[in-house]
Design a binder for these strands. Structure first.
Length: 477
RNA sequence: GGCGCCGUACCCAAGUGGCUAAGGGAGCAGUCUGCAAAACUGCGAUGCAGCGGUUCGAACCCGCUCGGCGCCUCCA
């Protein structure tokens, strides 16, 4: 059974969905004012894998992930560039899909935008005002934190501690320094919508409450996001939502750790971040390879802990994946010698069981991946003894099936080596095959000078040759 | 000041009370090979930052020390 570390309870809880075989999850997406960096990729990937694993485990998953498309940073960006906010958000939403698509991150079931839910947001704000949990001052509406006694239960903070540590300028109009905006009066030139308190725009936290409740119901299963969202964002979401509905909000709160660079948090403010597209542009590997390498790399650390981003880490991930795809290539070859081996099925079953056990343990992807490494080892050994064509296909399918949970091993063909020129090889596959025939004829004649010359020629095009015992060769690049 | 995380081999990374401390990358030696590549076989932490303590037993629990980091402010 799947257990998940729940920030709310501070421990690993068995996952039991509200409705049998149905899981409803909401994940805080991105504010679309810039390109996504690796940190966004990690978060998106973690919840993509959670969703895939729930589906693999037999759940029908309703997965909602929002776009924050109204915000101070967007307004600022639009003003800097002299374009409309819509132009900014449209651009970066497109970029988001492009980047995440390269990473193999599947779109959520629903991906709502804040600006499409203004009426829901206004309605929820009104409810909170009516219930006396929020108050109106000069066109702004604030949530009154001390009216919600459970405030701080997610982040394990006491109101007094927050007050003592507050480094923000205190807005005198607020009843309590920690009170936060549900609705903000718009200044001239800012996006604005009509409301009972005058023209304005939503605060940040309320959109997630309004959209998650609208699309998933007042109480749903999983709510996720980066560690940094625990406070204040998720704490505020809980206060608003529970305050408005009087019911429990999300039951499992899942938070992923940060991507760091040189042991430091990667962030915009530190300027030490890498965007996803930078990684792809910089990479000497093909797009498919880079996407899978990045996935493998990100999944080789448990989602809850920090992850140090480095070229070396990426390279190690690539090497590890090459081991898998090398095996897949061999599995594609028709049998030569058949030694019936009944172990294959048990080896696969054992691997699947171990894989599930690891994933059940709070999505322990590093262990899950290592179980697949063990399967690779086992299948390689069986291949030495001899597997029939059917068994080879069976083995390949097992990797494909289990790998699909992690989004790995789905490619038919993997470009191993570095490209000479971005986008183009010198030699086509048929030309390579012809060269190999030529080389093997030379080998038969023991003309090894000629054979090695051809090898060098192909190597210059990024191709590695592997000679098989039967005198033919396979190649990869 | 408050809350919290981390320190495991050359590198990455699981393990959080009890079989020989997973797995990967790199390395070394061997099998195979015309050579190579791949695969396979073998080697590699008597020890888990340090020091104390609890326990029959600790990397794992407790305390202290050292080192690194995060949140409390927009942030995945």
């Amino acid at each position: 059974m799947l257990t998940l570390f729940n920030t709310l309870t501070g421990k690993q809880d068995p996952f039991e969905s509200l409705e049998p075989n149905k899981a409803r999850m909401y994940v805080c997406g991105v504010t679309v004012y810039d390109y996504c960096h690796i940190g966004h990729a990690r978060s998106a990937l973690v919840f993509d894998v959670l969703r895939r694993y729930l589906e693999y485990s037999g759940y029908e998953v309703s997965f909602v992930k929002n776009f924050t498309d109204v915000d101070d940073k967007i307004i600022k960006r639009a003003n800097e560039q002299g374009v409309s906010c819509e132009a900014v958000t449209a651009k970066y939403i497109n970029a988001y899909y492009e980047d995440m698509g390269k990473l193999g991150i599947a779109p959520a079931t629903k991906e709502p935008k804040a600006t499409d839910h203004i009426t829901d947001i206004v309605a929820m704000t009104e409810t909170l005002v009516k219930k006396g949990l929020a108050y109106h001052v000069d066109g702004d509406v604030y949530f009154q934190v001390d009216k919600y006694p459970a405030y701080g239960r997610l982040s394990k903070r006491k109101l007094e501690d927050l007050q003592a540590g507050a480094r923000v300028e205190v807005d005198e109009r607020k009843h309590h320094p920690v009170d936060f905006a549900l609705w903000k009066r718009s200044k001239a030139g800012e996006p604005s919508w009509p409301s009972p308190w005058g023209p304005g725009r939503p605060g940040w936290h309320i959109e997630c409450s309004a959209m998650s409740i609208k699309h998933l119901g007042e109480t749903f299963d999983i709510h996720g996001g980066g560690m940094d969202l625990i406070f204040p964002h998720h704490e505020n979401e809980i206060a608003q939502s529970c305050g408005a509905t009087g019911k429990e909000f999300a039951r499992y709160w899942i938070h992923n750790g940060f991507v760091q660079v040189n042991q430091e948090k990667m962030s915009k403010s530190l300027g030490n971040f890498f965007t996803i597209r930078e990684i792809f542009e910089k990479s000497k590997w093909s797009q498919d390879v880079t996407g899978e390498v990045l996935r493998y790399f990100l999944l080789s650390t448990h989602y809850h802990g920090p992850l140090d981003f480095s070229d070396q880490g990426l390279h190690e991930a690539k090497q590890a994946l090459e081991g898998f795809y090398g095996l897949f290539n061999r599995l594609r070859e028709p049998e030569s010698n058949t030694v019936a081996d009944r172990n294959l099925v048990s080896v696969i079953d054992r691997a699947r069981e171990a894989f599930q056990k690891a994933m059940d343990d709070d999505l322990n992807t590093p262990v899950a991946v290592s179980e697949l490494q063990k399967l690779r080892y086992d299948v390689n050994k069986l291949l030495e003894v001899g597997l029939s064509t059917g068994e080879r296909q069976q083995a390949r399918e097992a990797f494909r099936l289990v790998g699909s949970v992690l989004g790995l091993f789905q490619l038919d063909r993997w470009e191993y080596g570095a490209k000479l020129e971005p986008g183009q090889y010198q030699l086509s596959s048929t030309e390579v095959d012809a060269k190999l025939v030529e080389r093997n004829e030379a080998r038969k004649r023991k003309d090894f000078r000629k054979a090695d010359e051809i090898r060098r020629l192909l190597a210059a095009d990024g191709i590695t040759i592997e000679d098989k015992p039967d005198g033919t060769s396979r190649w990869k690049r």
